[in-house]
């Protein structure tokens, strides 16, 4: 991504200097970088790239439980799996579209809130004050907790009869007529969003905090001398300086949230309620519950194409925006 491009600049500069290193034979010198990369390459091939190719091949096959032992023998089905997936008038396609839209809404809300909370917290904690170190450690706890341990605690809190949420909202604050169900029905969307934001914002906090450290202190001093108040400094210096960090942060948050499987899977189990039917769990169910792996693969490929397109457009647009603002 753009960051790699930036990282490479100093290297090409240095590479053009005459290298004063001894030459232990040309072949070794040329071969060495590849040798160093070899383990990573082999693993990436084995675990990421080859399975991806297999997944793409599978999406063109009629791969049901009858063929799973020897999947090579499954008959080719052309584009059938794709047609089923995007036929939005038929049940399968309709459910996929619904799940896709739910995921989009969920992701945008979650990423927005995570970014907002993380940025605000990082900016508020830029000064030193008593208890700042402790607070910073506390804030990172949701990020450090294993997903399943954290989410299972939320499951307990969202229980209908013995959960904390209903106890507070119904028994103590009397906000609802009767205890609500949080993990089934329409409320499940908000339950999922709450857990996702709780778990996700510390990452934004961490990255923004790191980004803030790269803003030179003289900028603030100069602004203060010019009479800019604290809020103005934040608006004029802090936020604009975070542009590059935000570009990567928002993309990473988007991809992670969009692809998140662990949170909904632990929160709802195998059968996610319709209102919180995130695409990863949806495809998992489409594959493993109905044993129709061909269709599941086609859906995954469509999802990947969508993410590629979004990432490409996002990087193109934001990079141009950043260049334009630099030129100004």
């Amino acid at each position: 991504m753009t960051t790699t491009a930036e990282v490479e600049k100093p290297r090409t500069d240095a590479g053009s200097e005459p290298a004063p290193r001894p030459r232990p034979g040309r072949i070794r010198r040329i071969g060495l970088p590849y040798l160093l990369l070899l383990p990573a390459l082999v693993l990436e091939l084995l675990v990421h790239l080859v399975p991806m190719v297999i997944g793409i091949v599978m999406s063109f096959k009629e791969l049901t439980q009858f063929y799973i032992r020897d999947w090579g023998t499954a008959p080719w089905s052309g584009l059938d799996n794709y047609k089923v997936s995007v036929d939005f008038d038929a049940p399968v396609g309709e459910a996929l579209l619904h799940s896709f839209l739910v995921t989009i809404g969920f992701t945008l809300l979650s990423v927005g809130l995570c970014w907002l909370i993380g940025t605000a917290a990082a900016i508020f904690m830029q000064d030193t004050f008593r208890g700042r170190g402790l607070l910073r450690a506390l804030f990172l706890v949701p990020y450090a907790l294993p997903v399943y341990a954290a989410v299972i605690t939320w499951v307990f809190m969202f229980q209908h009869d013995n959960g904390l949420v209903n106890h507070v909202l119904h028994d103590q604050l009397h906000l609802t007529d009767k205890p609500s169900f949080w993990l089934i029905g329409d409320n499940s969307f908000y339950a999922l969003l709450t857990v996702s934001v709780w778990k996700g914002w510390p990452f934004a906090f961490l990255i923004v905090m790191a980004g803030l450290q790269n803003i030179p202190g003289e900028l603030y001093e100069a602004a203060a001398l010019d009479g800019a108040g604290r809020w103005q400094q934040i608006r004029r210096i802090t936020l604009p300086s975070l542009g590059a960090v935000n570009q990567v942060l928002l993309l990473v948050l988007f991809l992670w949230t969009f692809n998140d499987f662990n949170t909904p899977f632990v929160l709802f189990g195998r059968a996610a309620p319709e209102a919180a039917d995130l695409i990863s769990v949806h495809i998992y169910q489409a594959s493993f519950v109905t044993w129709n792996f061909g269709t599941g693969s086609a859906m995954s490929v469509l999802l990947l194409l969508f993410l590629l397109a979004v990432t490409g457009v996002y990087l193109a647009v934001t990079s141009r925006g950043r260049r334009a603002s630099h030129a100004r």
Binding site: V50, G55, V252, L303, L304, L307
Partner: peptide, 21 residues
């Protein structure tokens, strides 16, 4: 670029292929 782009793969895409592999 290849290594970084694997970050955007949905885990579900290569769960079953990896299992078969």
């Amino acid at each position: 670029v290849t290594v970084l782009s694997t970050q955007m793969f949905p885990g579900i895409l290569f769960l079953l292929p990896l299992f078969l592999l």
